[in-house]
Simulated assay, not measured.
Amino acid sequence: MTLPRPKFITFDCYGTLTNFDMAGAARRVYGERLSPKAMACLVEAFRGYRLDEVLGPWKPLREVVHNSVERSCKRIGIQFKPEDAQRIYDEVPTWGPHPDVPAGLSRVAKEIPLVILSNSMNDLIMSNVEKLGAPFHTVITAEEVGAYKPLMKGFEYMLDKLGCGPEDITHVSSSFRYDLMTAYDLGIKSKVWVNRGHEPANPFYGYAEIPDISGLPGVFGL
């Protein structure tokens, strides 16, 4: 599928561009303490609780991680230590891009301005963005917005800041639950799903599918 060139290409960062390795961080902290079965249960619980935490009242990402780890430990019946959650959080700014990202991004950045809307903090995100290998027109964090995706507020804030409407952007993400469902509900018709295996396909939401960011230039005929 070839899409018309938008005024801006907007991106989810963590997971889509940055190799957001929360599961790996949890394994590095807890792996020697848990059986493989218990470790798998903790990782899955941690994934679900992170989503639940961001749907509530605004709180810093550090608290999202802390609460999610604490709830996960309670669920599988192990002791929670705040320093374990802090170790996971401290990894976030160290994570770099998926291998396919720099080359693909740099090609489209020559033709179309790139924007990030991220569930991140102001003091974290630029460490990740600087590793992506391409210039960004605008970077917006959940801290700046005062809300996390999948809530609509971040997308609405982004459109207002860019001075454009839903018809003027293409939104790119590897997640339906955090990004593409909300984009659909807001009338963003031009969407790209990066199939990184995080979630199953859901054609109802209408998108171009690519396996990784190396396929993004071709979506716009670049």
Rank of each mutant, 00 (worst) to 15 (best):
K161R: 15
F11L: 09
H66A: 07
C164R: 05
Y205G: 06
V115G: 05
F204Q: 14
L3A: 14
P102R: 06
D90N: 14
L186A: 12
S120V: 04
L17V: 10
V92H: 01
G24T: 01
A25Q: 12
G48C: 06
G31F: 06
G133S: 09
H98V: 09
P135N: 10
V108H: 05
L186Q: 10
P135I: 14
E63C: 05
G163P: 07
S118P: 05
N19K: 14
G197D: 11
P6I: 14
D84G: 07
L51A: 04
F204D: 14
I213Y: 06
Y89W: 10
V219S: 07
D84Q: 01
E199P: 02
V92Y: 07
L216C: 06
S106L: 14
T10A: 15
P217E: 10
I210D: 03
K149Q: 10
F46A: 02
C164D: 06
P150F: 05
F8A: 11
R75K: 13
E91H: 05
D12I: 13
L51H: 05
C73I: 10
A183W: 01
P36D: 11
T141A: 09
L162Y: 08
L51M: 14
A208W: 04
V192P: 02
I112W: 04
P97L: 08
C13Y: 02
W193N: 04
L222S: 11
A201S: 15
E199L: 11
T141E: 03
S173K: 00
E70W: 00
A147Q: 02
Y30H: 08
G221Y: 08
Y205M: 13
A109Y: 01
M181W: 00
P211Q: 11
Y49D: 00
K81T: 04
V29H: 03
